[in-house]
């Protein structure tokens, strides 16, 4: 069994309105040194695969097919073998 931890964020060129709202809320809480907030998504996916390379291929394929919209989002992940 493998456990993938996948982080999805907007590409830098894409406006993130929620991040902007959170930033201004932090400023109102006097965290005035906050310069940028980016809100993303986080997925944990448990899956079976024949080996680590196979697991990586499956994760990349499913991320691009569904978890992200390639127009605006990008992703990053780690994967490790875990006990089922």
């Amino acid at each position: 069994m493998y456990l993938a931890k996948i982080k999805v964020t907007y590409k830098p060129s894409v406006l993130d309105p929620q991040g902007e709202v959170i930033k201004s809320a932090l400023h109102r809480l006097d965290y005035e040194t906050v310069e940028q907030v980016v809100q993303g998504k986080y997925f944990e996916v448990k899956l079976t695969a024949s080996d680590l390379e196979d697991a990586k291929q499956l994760i990349e394929s499913m991320a691009e097919a569904l978890l992200i919209n390639q127009n605006t989002e990008t992703y990053d992940y780690t994967v490790e073998e875990v006990e089922g």
């Binding site: 894409v14 406006l15 309105p17 929620q18 709202v21 919209n69 127009n71 605006t72």
Partner: peptide, 16 residues
């Protein structure tokens, strides 16, 4: 847009 029949994407309004 999600199905690729039209280009681009609809995103959260500029002011949420």
């Amino acid at each position: 847009t999600e199905s690729g029949l039209l280009p681009g994407q609809l995103m959260m309004n500029e002011v949420p």
